[in-house]
Structure formats: C-alpha cells, structure tokens
Amino acid sequence: MRTPRVIVWLDRLQVDLIAAVARQAKFSIVGAGSPAKGQSGSVASSLGCPVVDDLRAALASAECDAILLASVGDFALSPTGQDAGAVRASHARGVRVISLEPVPPSAMDLSGQGWTREEHGQCPANLIRFVGLPRLSRVMRDAHEPLASVGRPRTLHIESYAGATTCSLASRLFAATDLMISLLGEPETVDAAYVGSAVGQGVRSAPPQSLANLDGDLSVTCRFPDGRAATLSASNQGGRWSFAATLLGEQGRLRLYDDGFEWIGVDGQKCDELRIRRGTRSANEIDTRAATALAESLARLLDASLPDDGPVPLESILCVAQAVLLSARTGQPESPATLRRAITPMM
C-alpha cells in the first residue's frame, strides 16, 4: 500500500505534535508551511520537508493526497471567496482538505464568502473533513450498543480540553458542539461565559465575534425545545488533550472518555465497561493523547478503503458557536435560530 502524502499547515509550536501524528498515522509529510509570517521555512526545516509558503497555491496545484490544516490563521476569511474556490479546486484534483480548526470560523463567513455556493451539486463547506471530533472517534464506535441502549439523553455534559500548543479553543468548542448536535439536535438557547487566557494577570478579555484564533475557556448551558439540557466546557488551556461526556437517560448513566466508557444502570449496577490502553505524556513533552486522537482520525480519512463519514453539520455548528460567543458578550441567553434567520438572506 502506498504511503499517503500530506502537506501540513501549522504553527511552530505544533511541529513535534504533527510529526508524532504522522508517525502514528503512517503518512509522509511532503511539504509544510505556517500561517505565521516568516515561519514557513522554520517549520518545514524542522519536519525535514520542502517549504510551502502559499496555502492557496498548494490547494490549487500541489502534488499530494491531502492537505492538513493544523492551524488556519486568516485562511477562510478572504472577502473575495478565493479560499472557498481553492478548497473546491483541491477536491476536483482528488486532494482531501482536512482541518483541526473550524473552516470557515463563523456563520457569517460561511454565508458570505462562497462557502455555500453549489456547483455540480457540491459546495466547498461540505468538502472539508475535520479531525479531533469525538463523534467520529473509536470510543464512539465501540460504545455503539450502550449508546443505543441508553437512548437519547435527557441531560448531557461534555468536556473538551487541550493544551495551548495543540489547537485553539475554537477547535474544542467546535468538537463539543458537533457531538452535542448529533445527540440532541440544535439547542433553542445557549447561555455562555468566556474566560480569556490572560485572566488572573489583571486582564479581562472580551470574547471575539468569530472562532478565528480563539483562546481561553468557555462554559455553556444549552436548553432544548423539549425540555432537555446540555452543558459544554471547552478550553485550550487545559494542559493536555482530554474528552469526556456524561449522558443521563432512561437506562442510566453512560460516561464516555478518550480511552473507553462506563455504563451504570438505573439500579446502580455496572452494565458495561471498556478501557482502551492509551499512551501518557512522553519525555519530550508531546501530548500523546492528542497525537493518538488525531492520528486515529487522520488514518481513517486517508484510508481510501473506508467509507467517507461525510460532512459535519457545519451551518448548525457555526450558528450555535456564534450564539455562544454572542451570549458571552451580552451576558444573556441567545438563540442559534435567530442568528440563522439573520444570515439566511446572505446564503
């Protein structure tokens, strides 16, 4: 089997992590660049591969099997729609675009820059595949029977954490929201609080208007039309990669982790349990939990023999995420549906 060839777009602090991901997922890095000005040469040298200093050109013409966006910088923010066009061109050449970060970073960007413009039955927003999503993880596949048995939860809690050198807060909020929507649908309202990474140093950070380059912590309470509820806790200041979800339903409590699950019945007895052996932090300070999670999802995406999981519900995720940021600014519950109605005329 031929080794997949991947171009990576990343920050300097992600170099060791992405190198570890490449080893575990068994792909070859054939080019590297960075959204940070002047850093492309450094990251390429560290990874021992050619320099890629123009992401849009790489999407349009580079010889590879996939392009991994570990960091995005200002990509997807072009007002001319050229970034959406570059993703479309990449797909037309059979080159998969894979991202750890939300692309585009807001519902407004999704609606106004060509991401939803269909050609031949496809739009660029649906051509990107995402890594680091718990919904598509091995644990969720292994927990298929307990999930079916517990049923649709009445109450859900999700924790989605990572270290600052792994990804942005946006990445972890995106992943948590994707899982919540898959289990409960889109919430009626969200009530959020944002804490910037500089709090405690005499600085209070106001949440931005989009997910682009977002850092810090978010706590979110979500209410659903049928009375169900969910809470999300997301951060890229959590030291290392960690995912957990608790589902409360008619058949008890199901707790999902990075490395397994535990199902406790309503009578308090353990109904099922699984633990997957995982690595711990390595001597050179690479977050091996992050490397393993990303490598597992990348390996599946690069394996042509496996079925495509399809696009994420990007519009719904971004509307929820934008409502979260708005709520964090206003201090009031906000409605994803209201935001959707505001942007629908633009789409």
Score class of each variant (00 low, 15 high):
residue 297 S to L: 01
residue 288 T to G: 08
residue 299 A to Q: 10
residue 306 L to F: 03
residue 317 I to N: 05
residue 315 E to R: 00
residue 316 S to H: 02
residue 309 D to I: 11
residue 285 E to V: 02
residue 288 T to R: 11
residue 301 L to F: 14
residue 316 S to Q: 04
residue 290 A to M: 05
residue 289 R to G: 12
residue 288 T to V: 01
residue 277 R to P: 08
residue 279 G to C: 09
residue 315 E to V: 01
residue 315 E to G: 06
residue 286 I to K: 01
residue 304 A to D: 14
residue 285 E to Y: 13
residue 275 R to C: 10
residue 276 I to C: 06
residue 284 N to W: 12
residue 287 D to E: 04
residue 310 G to P: 03
residue 303 D to E: 10
residue 308 D to F: 02
residue 312 V to N: 00
residue 281 R to Q: 14
residue 313 P to R: 02
residue 306 L to A: 06
residue 292 T to Y: 01
residue 281 R to T: 12
residue 309 D to R: 07
residue 285 E to W: 10
residue 307 P to L: 05
residue 291 A to D: 09
residue 303 D to A: 05
residue 307 P to R: 08
residue 291 A to M: 14
residue 317 I to W: 12
residue 283 A to P: 03
residue 309 D to G: 15
residue 300 R to K: 11
residue 280 T to H: 11
residue 308 D to R: 00
residue 314 L to F: 10
residue 315 E to C: 03
residue 292 T to R: 00
residue 283 A to Y: 05
residue 289 R to E: 13
residue 290 A to Q: 03
residue 284 N to F: 07
residue 316 S to P: 01
residue 274 L to G: 04
residue 301 L to E: 15
residue 291 A to F: 01
residue 284 N to I: 01
residue 278 R to H: 13
residue 285 E to L: 15
residue 313 P to D: 00
residue 306 L to E: 14
residue 310 G to L: 10
residue 313 P to T: 09
residue 283 A to H: 12
residue 301 L to H: 12
residue 294 L to C: 07
residue 317 I to P: 09
residue 311 P to E: 02
residue 308 D to W: 02
residue 297 S to R: 15
residue 314 L to C: 04
residue 295 A to C: 09
residue 278 R to W: 15
residue 286 I to G: 09
residue 300 R to A: 14
residue 316 S to D: 15
residue 299 A to Y: 02
residue 288 T to S: 14
residue 300 R to Y: 07
residue 284 N to G: 04
residue 277 R to D: 15
residue 278 R to C: 08
residue 296 E to P: 01
residue 293 A to E: 02
residue 313 P to G: 03
residue 315 E to Q: 00
residue 292 T to W: 00
residue 292 T to V: 15
residue 312 V to W: 04
residue 285 E to D: 05
residue 317 I to A: 05
residue 300 R to G: 09
residue 299 A to K: 11
residue 277 R to F: 12
residue 274 L to A: 04
residue 290 A to Y: 01
residue 293 A to N: 00
residue 306 L to I: 11
residue 278 R to S: 08
residue 288 T to C: 07
residue 294 L to R: 01
residue 298 L to M: 13
residue 298 L to T: 07
residue 292 T to L: 04
residue 285 E to F: 14
residue 293 A to Y: 07
residue 281 R to G: 15
residue 289 R to V: 08
residue 276 I to W: 11
residue 294 L to M: 12
residue 280 T to A: 07
residue 278 R to L: 05
residue 301 L to W: 08
residue 310 G to E: 11
